[in-house]
Design a protein around this nucleic acid. Sequence first.
DNA 1: CGCATTATGACAACATATTGTCAATGGAGG
DNA 2: CCTCCATTGACAATATGTTGTCATAATGCG
Lengths: 154, 154
Amino acid sequence: MYPRHSPEADSLTLFFLESFRFHGALMAAGERLTVPVGLTAARWQVLSTIARAKQPETVANVGRIMGLARQGVQRIVNDLIAGGLLRTTANPHHKRALLICLTNLGHEAFLSATARQVPWANTLAADLDATKIDEARSLIAMLSQLLDGRIGEH
Amino acid sequence: MYPRHSPEADSLTLFFLESFRFHGALMAAGERLTVPVGLTAARWQVLSTIARAKQPETVANVGRIMGLARQGVQRIVNDLIAGGLLRTTANPHHKRALLICLTNLGHEAFLSATARQVPWANTLAADLDATKIDEARSLIAMLSQLLDGRIGEH
DNA sequence: CGCATTATGACAACATATTGTCAATGGAGG
DNA sequence: CCTCCATTGACAATATGTTGTCATAATGCG
């Protein structure tokens, strides 16, 4: 009578439900990891994205890298600038779209967070198989692409 | 000099970064799927959790099932009650902790959302391998447990 | 060059979810 | 019984992220 889930779609739906719980747990862990260093999970992610970039990026570009709306990234960046962790530099290619880079304080905060994240990740990964992790990453990367491709849009 | 990521921890960190993008894409897809039915992704999830439960649950219990704080679920439930999709029933075991169940309208909304979600999931899963999806689900379920700190404490 | 389109930052409104706090409820032991 | 503690719903404050809108800056096309 009604359309039914294929077996793959059934697995996928269960995977999605588990994904929400996982995301919540991951964010909570990110908070525990970064709050002692004076950051939050979201600020740490923005800071890390900028720190890992090869060259200073615009706010809109950081948003694209992270898969977030530029407005949300802008608010976090403004907070980090207010906190002295980030600063703007002139963009030779665009008068309004300033480039964002780390201050010395921001670099120190990034290193402090990294110093905590590395042993945390090592402990967490101790009993896991890198191959399975990479396969899972491939899967969600493919799913992200499919979902961004507007599957199911009307 | 500084502690370094093990190969597994390196994979795990990349997996986490991809997870954030995936979660964003999944939420956006959930919105596209449910807004035409008069829901939102979050309300749909709460509604579905209650609809799938074997018996009426309390708000706090729905929060536990979903891995969310009960306060957030409470706000969504209040919105759904205001919209006529949910209603409360007396709890014989607790005078304050009312049980939540669907109204006829709520049941219709759940069926409408399901009617849209099923072909969407089938299309999305068409080229995927159920085994790999299940392995990925096992992985993130294990990670959620580790992150919640119930396992992993030696 | 001139004009339409796109990209960007700023601002506002809103949705979602968290933590903290409080009072009421229920249960477990003395 | 009565006290202590965990649970629950309510409320507030806050963090995060979205969409919408606007003005400005850059780009592409005739």
